[in-house]
């Protein structure tokens, strides 16, 4: 790749000085080694240090730099800059309050995550050594434990937009199923009770947006389906 100039249209809002958000047109020249959208943002920031966004690992494992990129949620550090239609339109994740520029207030998202009791519950006295789990039982956790809590999924889910306070959302439900699926966990009934509600689980209408955007290739819809199955099985 050679040097090239990329055009951006970026959502800007600084509560300290702006009455309302606006879109800023800005361009930046990239070095041949700049590959990812996050590289471009780093260069943009070198030019204008007032552009605010979160980032850390730059390799798709920390979940910091989720944003809306040309209309679709994704991680800046895993998105190739070339191949994006220009101007590249960057907005904060939809459906959450904006703090500044591309930074959203994640409180509601984490509140829902915390609401499912995201920790192993096992009330037996701790044995001296590890609790045993067969490789097959362990396999059940694949596709669940890898979630990086980036919120791409929940903020692309219409049900979450309308009811962020009542619907747990795909990320939280994926985490709920991660513990339901763990043979070491003893709180199955409490976990299901906690979701037995017209909103918390049942607002999911299988629209699949969440699966479409997950940068880790996870499938919250499938996990939600499995929780629904467990509810049904428990009822009979």
């Amino acid at each position: 790749m050679s040097k090239r100039t990329i055009q951006f249209s970026i959502y800007r809002y600084d509560p300290d000085k702006d009455d309302a958000p606006y879109m800023q047109d800005i361009s930046v020249e990239l070095e041949p080694t700049d590959r990812k959208l996050l590289d471009a943002l780093t260069k943009l920031k070198a030019k204008d240090d007032t552009i605010a966004y979160r980032r850390s690992c730059r390799e798709g494992v920390c979940g910091s730099d989720a944003m809306n990129i040309n209309g679709k949620n994704g991680l800046a550090c895993l998105t190739d800059i070339d191949g994006l239609k220009q101007p590249v339109v960057l907005r904060p994740l939809p459906g959450l309050p904006v703090i500044r520029d591309l930074i959203v207030d994640m409180t509601q998202f984490f509140k829902q995550y915390h609401s499912i009791k995201p920790y192993l519950v096992n009330n037996d006295p701790a044995p001296e050594r590890e609790r045993l789990q067969s490789p097959e039982d362990r396999e059940e956790l694949n596709g669940l434990y890898e979630c990086i809590l980036c919120a791409c999924c929940s903020t692309s889910c219409p049900s979450f937009w309308w009811n962020p306070d009542k619907f747990v959302g795909p990320a939280g439900l994926l985490a709920a199923y991660r513990f339901l699926a763990d043979t070491r966990d003893q709180a199955t009934n409490e976990r299901l009770d906690n979701l037995e509600d017209p909103y918390r689980l049942f607002r999911c209408h299988t629209i699949m947006n969440c699966v479409d955007v997950c940068p880790k290739g996870l499938n919250p819809t499938q996990a939600i389906g499995k929780i629904k199955d467990m509810m049904v099985r428990r009822a009979v």
Binding site: R131, L132, S134, P135, R184, D185
Partner: peptide
């Protein structure tokens, strides 16, 4: 490491179920 397992860490397993 055993404590971590008790906290819920999803270690891979040997055939006999150990870490």
């Amino acid at each position: 490491v055993v404590e971590l397992e008790h906290y819920g860490m999803p270690f891979d397993r040997t055939d006999n179920g150990k870490i």
